[in-house]
């Protein structure tokens, strides 16, 4: 075999081994590398109350309630399969609204009840001008 071909085979073999190793590592990391729990995962994995986690999903439509104190909100986080009641005190991002994605950092105080310290709004991959979105997204925002 010519030296050039030998180097080609060697490089390709090394590359193949590298890709295989990386894919293995990535699939092993699959759960650890997730940024948040979905409600169904959190219930299935029996996340301990008090354990700091992130809970992500959609803010269930019609679930958003502002408490009389004006800064505390109650809402439900859903992933379609399960839903969890959540409570948060503080200022939420502009994009936090019913029917939109949310990632809440906090802990379960009881199974199915979550208290958040931080609220992040999660944007989805759909971008459209307000005129098109129009009636489709007539969801109530938190802006007073």
């Amino acid at each position: 075999m010519k030296a050039k071909n030998q180097r080609l085979v060697l490089t390709l073999a090394a590359l193949g081994a590298l890709v295989a190793a990386a894919l293995l590592a990535m699939s092993a990391l699959r759960n650890q590398a997730s940024f948040f729990y979905s409600p169904a995962d959190a219930l299935r994995d029996h996340v301990r109350p008090g354990q700091a986690i992130r809970l992500g999903g959609m803010v269930e439509k019609g679930s958003l309630v502002r408490e009389p104190d004006g800064v505390t909100i109650d809402f439900r986080v859903t992933d379609g399969a399960a839903s969890v009641a959540a409570r948060y005190t503080g200022i939420v991002p502009d994009l936090f609204r019913e029917g939109s994605g949310v990632v809440a950092e906090g802990r379960f105080v009881a199974p199915g009840t979550f208290v958040a310290d931080t609220i992040l709004a999660k944007h989805d991959e759909k971008y459209m001008p307000p005129q098109i979105a129009g009636s489709m997204h007539e969801t109530k925002s938190l802006k007073p």
């Binding site: 997730s34 940024f35 948040f36 992500g56 989805d124 991959e125 971008y127």
Partner: peptide
């Protein structure tokens, strides 16, 4: 795709895009 991320999924693929043409 592999992990749940804060970053949104892919908007533009080979089959189309989820970004309205007037914005895209």
């Amino acid at each position: 795709l592999w992990w749940r991320t804060l970053h949104q999924g892919q908007s533009i693929g080979f089959t189309g895009s989820t970004i309205a043409p007037s914005i895209l």
